[in-house]
Nucleic acid binder design. Structure first.
Lengths: 161, 161
DNA sequence: GTCGTTGCAAAAGTTTTGCACGTTA
DNA sequence: TAACGTGCAAAACTTTTGCAACGAC
């Protein structure tokens, strides 16, 4: 499944043709960055990464490009705990787990849920187009940190600010 | 389960005492407004509603108060499709369905999901503290509008801008 | 060459903060 | 009265927009 950079570029050109949008260096780099990211970066974060290859790119181009990709269904905007929009290159049905300590977001699949029939309450509400599960908790990496007591970014009790 | 205003006020005073926060008219009105709301209002919306009873209240007080309530676990901040924070007075385990046409958000319960064991992928990821399902679709009210053809806020196809 | 895209700068919208004053316990 | 909470104004931060210049097709 792993593709070379050139293969990805070729793929992007094809996708752009299909969607009738122009191929620009900015779009290309943003696309490559987003599809290789597995950490659901924010626009700002993508901007920082793209800047390394394309120092002249501007933040608003990143915003515009990501919106374009989202409208075209190439990526998905997701909203989790913070107020920032994050971007997900995975447009297949999947779910997310989010660490309340480090904020990391990880994909997972749960076919049982996808197949399960919804409560009648929901069926009566309207026409459902998708279902998504967000699991929250503390990832093992953060849990280890807490156990070891080096609470670097481990503010164990969110309630005593 | 329905309480009179006076009962609610009494309840709020008790809650404040428990949490060692002071009772002020602003906090009281914000609290009453939030716990009677079932539409997951934003801070701005709560501000508008509170203003009717308390014309001198300021928006930042609403923000500060809602954050305080959230920290104390009296209400919950929730993030759905838009980038605004919304507030949920229901701190029990429950899930949400959201209409992609009108943006309304409605609670529902799904005990099977709550009881179901998570995929091993998730168990290995870390220590889970909660799970939440977001169901998206078109609520019957909006579906009716679309069928009738009076597409007031019914832009049926989000993908052909 | 045309039209879509970019960069800049400015604006808009949401949320946070500093500070002096007012209110609660 | 001491500490906490409020209102105002300004700032911070994310995201959007107008416009002239540029670049892809």
């Amino acid at each position: 499944m792993k593709q070379s950079r050139n293969q990805k570029i070729e793929m992007f050109r094809t996708v752009c043709k299909e969607h009738a949008i122009k191929v620009t260096p900015q779009r290309l780099e943003i696309f490559l960055e987003v599809i290789s990211a597995n950490d659901h970066p924010s626009a700002e974060e993508i901007f920082r990464r793209v800047q390394k290859r394309l120092p002249t790119v501007s933040l608003d181009t990143v915003y515009r490009t990501l919106s374009t990709f989202d409208e075209q269904g190439l990526i998905a905007k997701v909203h989790f705990l913070d107020d920032k929009t994050r971007f997900d290159p995975n447009t297949q049905q999947h779910h997310h787990m989010s660490c309340i300590k480090c904020g990391s977001i990880t994909d997972f699949v749960w076919p049982e849920i996808d197949a399960m029939s919804l409560p009648s309450e929901v069926e009566g509400w309207g026409k459902v187009s998708d279902r998504h599960v967000l699991v929250r908790g503390v990832c093992s990496r953060c849990a280890d940190k807490i156990d070891r007591g080096d609470g670097k970014d481990a503010d164990t009790s969110p309630n005593d600010s």
